[in-house]
Each structure stands twice: as C-alpha cells, then as structure tokens.
C-alpha cells in the first residue's frame, strides 16, 4: 500500500488531502474569501494559508486515521499558481518530509485536476476540459503527455466570471462563480455578447470589457437585470468552451469528456456539455465541489501516480514556479 499526503495552495484555497491506493482518506480545505468587489492578492492569500495550513494538516491526519509512519510520500503543488501561497505550502511540505524522513513529489497543479477527475469518475481516456480561475484548457492524452489542444489566449474563464461578479458586487462566499450560477437561473432576457473562438482557442477579455460596460449602462436604464447578464455571460462563455471541446473530441475520435477545475462544478456547464456528448454518443464525466475545486487530495493522487513511476523530486529541486505547462509533465504512469 502506498499512502500519499498532498499539499495544495496555489490560489485562494489551502488544502491537505491523503490518498491510499485510489482511496481518499481525508481532504481538508479552507478558502480565503475576500469582501464583495475585491479579488485575492498574493501576500494576503499567503498570510491566510500560513495561518491555516498546520491545523489543516493535523485534521487531515486525524480524519485519515494514519500516523506519519504510515506515509510513503509528501506531495505538493510545484506550480502553476501564485508564488507566495505556493511557497508557503512548499515550506511546510519540505519541513515535514525531513522530520518524517519521506521523499517529496512536486506535482503539476493541472495534472492534479486531471488525475483526480479520472480517479473519481473512472473515465479511462477522456478529452479533458480544465476550467478554473487561473486556467482554461482543452486537453487530450497522447504518448505520455497531456497535450493542450486549445486554451484561452488571455484570461481564464473563471477569472472572467469572478471579475464580473466584482463589478456587480456579488458575494465571494462560497465563490463568486457559484453565486453567478444561482443568479443566472433567474435570468430571462439574453443579451448578445461577443463570441470569441479562434480556431481551437478562446478569448474572454473582450467579453468582460463589453459586459462591464453593459452592466453599467443597461442596468441603469432598466433594459436588463443583473440576473439577465449573469445568464447571458454563462450561456456565451460555456457555448464557446463546449464548441472547442467538441472539436477536440472529433479530432481525437474520443468517446469520453471529463470536466475538471473549479468552474467544472457549474451545473449549467455540465448540462450544456452533456447535450453535446449525447449528440455524439459520448459519455460526460464530472465531479462535485469536493474534488472539482482545488484540494489536497488531487495533489496526493497525482503525486501517488508520479511516486509509483519513480517521479521523486530531490529536496534542492522543490522550488515552486508560477509557470508550469500541463504538457511539460512526462506522464510516466500511463501507457
């Protein structure tokens, strides 16, 4: 049996998860929530993680009912993400690895999402849509590499939604995207927005500028409501994502699609992707908030795979990095 502890803190979530041979033993998480209208800044986020991480580690060990002696490897997010919060988690991971005399495994955050999605849903070889506050990519596996078929050319889709939520002063608790999703259910009127698909890539910054302006003008004039705009924004950006995902599936002849990342728990996105999958005779796989949103278990799971295929990171190479491409990882654990 191999037991992996995973530390995640690349954005505003701090989490520690423990996985034993495909079984999630614990997955403790805390979210840094900012006031409405404000985003999270690196140094404040790092301070939050610093204050929480040791208690979260203690709870993760307790819930998993394991002792340090049972642990085989210490996994942590090497990148991509915000440098200061990443460093906080790496410092704790390095310290416990030395105290317990265990090897360290530096994990790519995006690969963590993919491996967690595969574990939870049982999808074998899916085309992956990875959508979150920091990343937007369509990914397919080929020859020990998660290849990026398409991606955003500017901001992530989650960042677009989060920043629109700030304009409307929507609450960030539990997350701005969740509150947009709820508000969108009350939307009645579709406001035409730019639709920006460029080949396999998408762009969101122009849509955000457009809708920010529309929010100020149209709501003041009574031409539409905040709910109408949330609804229109979701319909537009999700249609773009479904379009590029479908094109990737057609190209790969794929019969499975997996949605991962924080935006992946949006029910409307899952519904739209489900319609596309059904029309193609393909299967849709998605997970809920526990595993879609950043968590420690996803780092433990990807690290567990990496550890078993010999992917240990020497202590001196455990530095963190803001840029770490999904396709930079040698996926030695897959055929």
């Amino acid at each position: 049996m191999v037991v992996a502890v995973g530390f995640e803190g690349s954005a505003n979530k701090v989490g520690v998860g423990i996985v034993r041979d495909g079984e999630v033993l614990s997955n403790v998480r805390d979210t840094y929530i900012t006031p409405p209208g404000e985003g999270f800044q690196p140094s404040e986020t790092a301070r939050h993680h610093r204050a929480k991480v040791l208690d979260i580690l203690r709870r993760a060990l307790e819930e998993a009912k394991i002792t340090p002696q049972d642990v085989d490897c210490i996994c942590f997010t090497k990148g991509p993400g915000m440098a200061a919060p990443l460093t906080v988690m790496a410092v704790v991971a390095r310290t416990v690895a030395q105290l317990w005399n265990k090897p360290l495994v530096g994990v790519n955050h995006c690969v963590g999402h993919i491996e967690m999605g595969r574990l939870i849903t049982g999808a074998q070889n899916p085309t992956v849509l990875y959508v979150s506050g920091g990343n937007t990519q369509v990914i397919a596996y080929s020859r020990q590499c998660y290849r990026v078929f398409g991606e955003t050319i500017d901001m992530a889709v989650g960042n677009c939604l989060d920043r629109f939520a700030r304009v409307l002063k929507i609450s960030n608790d539990p997350s701005p995207g969740y509150n947009i999703e709820q508000l969108a259910k009350e939307g009645k009127k579709f406001i035409q927005l730019p639709y920006v698909v460029k080949g396999m890539d998408v762009s969101f910054s122009g849509i955000l500028s457009f809708i920010e302006k529309a929010a100020r003008k149209k709501i003041a004039k009574g031409e539409c409501t905040a709910a109408d705009l949330c609804y229109s924004l979701q319909e537009t950006v999700f249609a773009m994502l479904v379009e590029i995902t479908e094109r990737a599936m057609a190209h790969c002849g794929s019969q499975e699609v997996l949605i991962v990342g924080g935006v992946g728990c949006n029910k409307r996105l899952q519904e739209m992707m489900g319609v596309m999958a059904k029309e193609r005779g393909a299967m849709l796989y998605a997970t809920d908030m526990r595993f879609c949103i950043d968590n420690g278990a996803m780092i433990a799971q990807a690290g567990w795979e990496q550890f078993r295929s010999g992917g240990v990171t020497p202590l001196e190479d455990t530095w963190v990095t803001q840029r770490f491409r999904t396709d930079d990882v040698h996926v030695a654990w897959r055929e």
Partner: peptide, 9 residues
C-alpha cells in the same frame, strides 16, 4: 512557519 511545523510535527 518552518519552526512552527518542526514544533507541531
């Protein structure tokens, strides 16, 4: 942070 981690774990 590393000192607190040493103390606790």
């Amino acid at each position: 942070l590393t000192c607190e981690t040493i103390d606790a774990f």
